[in-house]
């Protein structure tokens, strides 16, 4: 498996929406390479024939009655919003220059 590079970290930070400066990218890529070295041994034992486990205790068909319940009022939902207007969440422009 290839090592994690500084360019990889810069790309991943963009994907994860975390702004990072040059110093942080240097530090983070060094740390992550070290961490990856410590954990990539998992592929040694993960043979083709081993099924994957995504959940420790499988439950099937978890349903409830299709009735609305436990909803927040508009006021409650907006009470802790960073910014709100006219009963809606207010956000900055989605695209540049608009």
């Amino acid at each position: 498996m290839s090592a994690i590079t500084r360019e990889d970290v810069a790309h991943l930070a963009r994907l994860a929406h975390i702004r990072m400066d040059e110093n942080e990218l240097d530090k983070m890529s060094g740390e992550l390479a070290f961490i990856m070295d410590a954990i990539t041994s998992v592929s040694e034992v993960a043979g083709q024939d081993v099924p994957r486990t995504s959940h420790p205790i499988p439950l099937r068909n978890v349903f409830r009655e299709d009735v609305p319940s436990g909803m927040l009022t508009q006021e409650q939902a907006l009470a802790m919003a960073p910014d709100a207007e006219d009963g809606q969440f207010k956000v900055p422009a989605i695209l540049d220059g608009e």
Partner: peptide, 27 residues
Amino acid sequence: RRIILGTYALSAGYYDAYYGSAQKVRT
């Protein structure tokens, strides 16, 4: 660190080798 690591483990091209292998180890 953990968000970046997780984003890496789930990214196309690495998913099977990292996340997939880990799920097999879980079994």
